[in-house]
């Protein structure tokens, strides 16, 4: 049992690692990677804890939720990458422009 806890805690670590990179890294491709790491960490937490059922058969509901989440993450990544390419062809930049009013 406790060995699966290790993986759930890994999920927590991945989430924070991704959050750090999302804030610190400027390149947009890196930010997109960071968001994917964040969601992977949350999925690991969500479905990892599903393995703590007493019977040994994991809870199918969080597993189905993670499947949904993976598909949503792929969709979001595809849209973000397309936006990045459009931004790059319009402005030549691959990072966000910070000086628009704020």
């Amino acid at each position: 049992m406790s060995s699966v806890l290790v993986l759930a805690l890994t999920g927590a670590g991945l989430t924070l690692l991704g959050l750090h990179a999302l804030i610190v890294k400027a390149h947009l491709l890196r930010k997109i990677l960071a968001l994917n790491v964040i969601s992977s960490g949350i999925f690991l937490l969500l479905a990892g804890l599903a393995a703590r059922t007493p019977g040994g058969e994991p809870d199918p509901v969080p597993q189905a939720m993670v499947l949904t989440g993976i598909v949503v993450a792929v969709a979001a990544t595809a849209l973000a990458l397309a936006l990045l390419l459009a931004l790059r062809s319009a402005t030549g930049r691959t990072r966000l422009d910070d000086d628009n009013g704020q």
Binding site: L83, A86, L87, A90, L96, D97, N100
Partner: peptide
């Protein structure tokens, strides 16, 4: 540019 930047 500005709209794409904002959207991103």
């Amino acid at each position: 540019g500005p709209a794409l930047n904002a959207a991103m």
